[in-house]
Nucleic acid binder design. Structure first.
Length: 900
RNA sequence: GCCCAGGUGGCGAAAUUGGUCAUACGCGGGGGACUUAAAAUCCCCUCUCUUCGGGGGUGCGGGUUCGAGUCCCGCCCUGGGCACCA
């Protein structure tokens, strides 16, 4: 019988389960290693081959680290709240919990088939009440805290100092004072309402729905917000020291979007004092002298007051028109260069030169950033330039190029740094100095101050959905006829989801939970909060729960958290580069401030695995315009020719096609199902191929022929250990030679140990596998019987990649138990050294010969002897002759370069 | 437009800090062995030109260096992200 992967894999999966081989326990005598996958949303369609790429990588590391003596935590769970289950419920009436359980079961079956070494006793699901009890608990920590800017950290709200004048106004005022400072707060604001889905979308979710053809409009609604903006600076600062891909670090920094500048006060003409103070934010205070107009966002509170009678109607109309458009929509149109806006009729005084500048409103200024108002400097800002040109507003030059020279700001804005001109007290100063000087001057005059702004906005945290964590809050009537928010006591958590008949929100946006009146209305007259949390909530802290997943009294114990955290290696898709990682970091920092965790950052090393691409076939001539795009899958096509002359045509139409590689998706029909691959080749082959395709971080196409190559390698290895049984008899274990076999085998073995170890450490799995392939090939080629010790070592080296087959080998060698905790071998350095080494002889940088140098000559110490040897070589004689070389470069152990 | 990553054989890809031979390993292709035959397996060849001495070649054009896939400058292309953030 040849390599019977199905039987072998079933046997070892059962063994691991039965022996609880991968269960992790806190053990302070060993160093720990926490290796985590981004847990999946268990979708109805099951795993595709893209999922196991990252999972295989973490599994290799987990298994390698165990053999290196680490106590490894390698858990898996389910990010199981989510919209698909809810939509499925709306369509079929099946409760989301039922559907979710089915999907989880399927995912788990598939993952188990791949032989991943997860500690399944730690399995968690975010939808499990035993889990979301603590999600709710963490929310209450946020609700119960404020950010102390002076201390630079969050503190319990009870410690917030209440000003005496507030105290004097009574409990309602104190409550309001506190509520306005909590890290979780209610905020009425225009939100992105999607009528088709009947849900509110976060800004970052709008694009996706608009692309899907769903309308998104703005409506005001009361929403729970989380004060992530207070952490903006720390979220930037603490990126330092993380071992993360540069691209992710950059994306996070850009998302947070720190910018330094100044706030400047303009005084509106005709409105005295504080009320008429119009504050703007600018990163270029040095261009203040070039401000020829101002712009307010249409939502700016001062807009209504500023509009003069003559302009009131136009202003009103503009404000209403923009209110209907989503922020994204506004930005998209305007970014094309279409600038719209209306003059308010009012003017304000420029504090640096006393000039009166007109005040406009325009939607290219956003209320959510800075102060919602700008000074416009068309000479030195592209957007202002476009607007001024459209509206016929004056453009003034106040910065010139450093080396002198002319620029025409009428034609195009000069946005670079330079030297201030036409700018009074800062004339002649380079931009940086001009900024500093004018900012200092403004501060002195009480007309402005230096200021740092961030693009990051507070996090819209409530959703009008059923399938999410309920907020552990109630709205309690107060004696004055109002209501106050009160937490559900920890002892009463979790707040579970009520049974409902209908999972749809109402047309007005009332969440589905609002219809469960028996659940909403409490005996004391309080009403439960009916929003639910977004899907991000559960994934913000699951890595902490994995440390102590069955704890019923706390989200985690100090002991477990202190031992396992931080996550040493975190692998997942690049699509989570910003939001998930930012939100999780934010929660972690709040928990850190409040003393619940001991680490500032949760994830030490982060790796994004690349995408696995699937094949589709499209017309070679390109898609005809105006027609529905034609995309075909492998079943539709016929392959003609071979090698470099390969051609694809459609089976029926004979249309010439060309292959195209895309992200795998159901809609494209280019998905490969792991079940099929495993059935044909086995999990070990599948794991091996996924890693052999190329570097983990790179995207690569799934090529079925490549899978076969990996299978062939395992089958070869199998034949190294087993002899085919005659006439249907079981395969017999081969006889092995003594020890590490022949001298050649020993050397080969130790080189393989050295290479595989080093390449796993570098996570260069494709090249590590190549070393293993070379080992098998060369042992075969050598023809001698493999030494038993060498066979054992090889099994260990293979185990992280193809664990089932490795276990099979291990047992064949006479071991009773699993090789999971067998020690990782160390290479004998002395065997890596050859008898002689090759010195390359170059003449003027070109290779002209080589020389075998005996190992008795040390590359470094015997420099002179080696040089002498080289100078006497044929190559030097031929190309240099007797002439004295101008230069001789000797690279120890590598080459000698003679320049005549 | 801006930011990040990347461009190496017919294909997936190798090449510690600039240092031998660019193209390991695998796929595909060609030739052969075994077989009645096929599958499986095994062996050899597989960047290119060549007058067989050697020459050229890592997206393109320059540069630094004794020596560049690797470093610098300027382009081109592909993928990902951001995109009126004042």
């Amino acid at each position: 019988m040849p390599y019977d992967h199905a039987a072998i894999e079933a046997r070892w999966q059962a063994y691991w389960d039965e022996h609880e081989t991968f269960e992790a326990k806190v053990d302070r005598s060993k160093p720990k290693y926490y290796v985590l996958d981004m847990f999946p949303y268990p979708s109805g369609s099951g795993l595709h081959v893209g999922h196991p790429e990252g999972y295989t990588a973490t599994d290799i590391i987990a298994r390698y680290k165990r053999m290196k003596g680490f106590n490894v935590l390698h858990p898996m769970g389910w990010d199981s709240f989510g919209l698909p289950a809810e939509r499925y419920a709306m369509k079929t009436g099946t409760h989301p919990a039922v559907r979710t359980d089915e999907c989880i079961a399927n995912f788990k079956r598939q993952l188990k088939m791949l032989g991943f070494s997860y500690d399944w006793s730690r399995e968690i699901a975010t939808t499990d009440p035993g889990y979301f009890k603590w999600t709710q608990w963490i929310f209450l920590q946020l609700w119960g805290a404020f950010y102390d800017r002076e201390a630079g950290k969050a503190r319990p709200i009870a410690e917030l100092a209440i000003p005496t004048e507030v105290e004097a106004e009574g409990p309602a005022a104190v409550r309001a004072y506190r509520d306005a400072r909590r890290l979780a707060y209610l905020h009425e604001a225009p939100v992105n309402w999607c009528p088709a889905l009947r849900i509110v979308l976060a800004n970052e979710e709008v694009a996706e729905q608009v692309e899907a053809g769903n309308e998104v409009i703005r409506v005001p609604m009361k929403q729970w917000m989380l004060r992530i903006t207070e952490y903006a600076q720390r979220l930037i600062d603490d990126l330092e020291g993380l071992d993360w891909p540069n691209s992710v670090l950059e994306m996070q920094r850009h998302w947070i979007g720190r910018s330094e500048g100044a706030e400047v006060d303009f005084q509106v003409q005709g409105i005295e004092g504080e009320e008429g103070r119009l504050r703007v934010f600018t990163t270029r205070p040095d261009t203040l002298f070039g401000a020829t107009y101002m712009v307010l966002a249409p939502e700016h509170p001062l807009v209504a007051r500023l509009a003069t009678d003559a302009q009131r109607e136009a202003v009103q109309a503009y404000v209403e028109a923009t209110a209907r458009r989503t922020e994204r929509d506004r930005q998209a149109a305007s970014a094309e260069g279409e600038k719209t806006g209306v003059f308010t009729g009012a003017h304000a005084i420029n504090p640096v030169n006393g000039e009166a500048v007109p005040i406009w409103i325009a939607d290219y200024v956003l209320m959510g950033y800075g102060t919602g108002a700008i000074m416009a400097v068309p000479g030195h800002d592209t957007r202002d330039h476009a607007f001024a040109t459209t509206m016929g507003i004056a453009i003034k030059q106040v910065v010139g190029p450093v080396g002198g020279g002319e620029v025409d700001v009428q034609a195009e804005a000069f946005t670079e740094q330079g030297v201030a001109v036409n700018s009074g007290l800062i004339d002649g100063l380079p931009t940086a100095e001009a900024k500093a000087k004018i900012t200092a001057w403004l501060a002195e005059q009480g007309k402005g101050e230096a200021r740092v702004n961030y693009k990051l906005r507070d996090w819209l945290f409530s959703r009008q959905r059923y399938w999410g964590e309920p907020f552990p809050l109630v709205h309690k009537p107060t004696p004055d006829g109002g209501s106050e928010v009160a937490p559900v006591p920890t002892a009463d958590l979790p707040v579970g989801l009520p049974e409902v008949e209908d999972f749809n929100p109402s047309e007005t946006g009332e969440p589905p939970l609002a219809k469960a009146t028996a659940w909403v209305e409490l005996p004391d007259g309080s009403r439960r909060e009916t929003n639910t949390m977004p899907q991000w909530a559960g994934s913000c802290w699951y890595y902490l729960r994995f440390c102590d997943p069955r704890n019923a009294d706390a989200p985690w114990s100090d002991e477990a958290q202190d031992y396992w955290m931080p996550v040493d290696l975190y692998i997942g898709g690049a699509e989570h580069a910003v939001l998930h990682l930012l939100y999780a970091r934010f929660w972690h920092k709040v928990l850190f401030d409040l003393g619940h965790v001991g680490t500032r950052e949760p994830f030490h090393k982060l790796v994004n695995q690349g995408m696995i691409l699937g094949a589709t076939y499209v017309p070679k001539q390109g898609q005809p315009k105006g027609e529905v795009k034609r995309i075909y899958v492998a079943d539709d096509i016929e392959t003609l020719g071979e090698g470099e002359n390969v051609e694809y045509v459609h089976k029926q139409t004979r249309e010439p096609l060309t292959i195209q590689w895309d992200k795998m998706s159901k809609s494209r029909g280019n998905v490969i199902n792991p079940d099929d691959v495993i059935a044909e080749y086995g999990a070990d082959t599948m794991r091996l191929y996924e890693m052999f395709m190329g570097p983990l971080e790179a995207s690569a196409p799934w090529q079925p022929e490549g899978v076969n190559g990996c299978f062939r390698f395992l089958a070869r290895a199998y034949r190294l250990f087993f002899e085919q049984g005659k006439d249907g008899a079981a395969d017999a274990v081969r006889e092995f030679a003594e020890g590490e076999g022949t001298e050649d085998q020993r050397r080969l073995l130790h080189r393989t140990i050295s290479e595989v170890s080093e390449r796993i450490e570098r996570m260069s799995f494709n090249t590590a596998i190549s070393s293993l392939m070379v080992f098998v090939r060369d042992v075969e080629k050598g023809g001698a019987r493999l030494g038993k010790a060498a066979a054992e070592t090889f099994s260990v080296l293979l185990a992280p990649f193809a664990p089932h087959l490795a276990e099979e080998f291990w047992r064949a060698l006479g071991h009773e138990s699993s090789l999971t905790y067998a020690p990782w071998p160390a290479a004998d350095e002395s065997l890596l050294v050859e008898d002689s080494w090759t010195l390359v002889i170059q003449i003027k940088g070109k290779k002209r010969g080589e020389l075998q140098v005996p190992s008795s000559l040390d590359p470094k110490a015997d420099r002179e002897a080696i040089t002498k040897l080289a100078m006497a070589s044929d190559a030097v004689e031929r190309f240099v002759g007797d002439a004295e070389p101008r230069r001789v470069i000797y690279v120890p152990g590598k080459l000698i370069n003679v320049v005549p």
